[in-house]
Amino acid sequence: MTRRDPSDFVSSVRKPDDFDDYWQATEAETLAIPLNPRLKPDPMRSTAEVEVFEARYDSYAGLEIAGWYCRPRNFEGQLPGYLFVPGYVSEPKLPTDLALRGYAAFSAAPRNKLRSNSVFNPGYPGLLTHNIDKRTEYGYRGFYMDAIRAFDFLSGLDEVDSSRICVQGGSQGGALTLLVSSLRADQVACASAGAPYLCSMMDSASLTRSYPYEEINDYLRLHPEREEAVRDTLDLHDIHNFVDKIECPIIVNIGLMDDVCPPETGFAVFNQIGSEDKKLYTYEDCAHDSGSGVGHDKVMQEFLDGHLNPVAL
């Protein structure tokens, strides 16, 4: 038995008729809540070169969301902005390294992450299947809005040049990068998405037995009668259905042996991206690391810095 070429994969995701209406309504509901951005200095994590702040803002359904904000201590004029969006189980990074590179950097902790989980806390495993059979109550509905609002937080800061903001992340962060680049298509200057998760979700669950997608297999093993409802919910939230709106220069990297986010779905979502200025990097024998151990971090840094021209400290 041989493996099919993952680049030939055709996604089974369907775009629901109400997809655009659903997300416009969700965004309108979110925007009706004042962002209420707050920054609190964190002297212990700050250095002579970088100032660190604990950030808070309000998001969908009124939940308070946390984040980290870092900026160079001394700078002139406005800074390019860098939104870092996190993976599924990892804690959001404290982006002092990005501030050292000359960015105003925001690292978001969407709901369910530590510091943002006092109200919504389905845990890990748990988030991927939280209300998965209830299409408008699915956990990722608010989670997606938390990422959008993180971008709004960053772009609203006086010291940030709103024409020079990038979005970057890997895995779930890759998914959120694609999401923000889609729903803020007129504002994101460039983006880098690694091993994107939440793409062709039902297909992914059938391609792998690794978590987090295994959560879907676990759920359907116990509730096989709910498969159609689950597919309907996931189609409504699948990143594959957003990305035709992306306009900015963007790079995507995938590992050709990624058991966490199958490369088949990475090829499929890349093909769907609307931007003409897009490039896919594929890495043989890499898994969910998707090239980070063989030089992709440098590729990514040069791509983002090349578009945004930060002044490194």
Partner: peptide
């Protein structure tokens, strides 16, 4: 020494 290729290292 890891090769930096997650699949092979795993």
């Amino acid at each position: 020494v890891n090769l930096g290729k997650g699949h092979l290292d795993h």
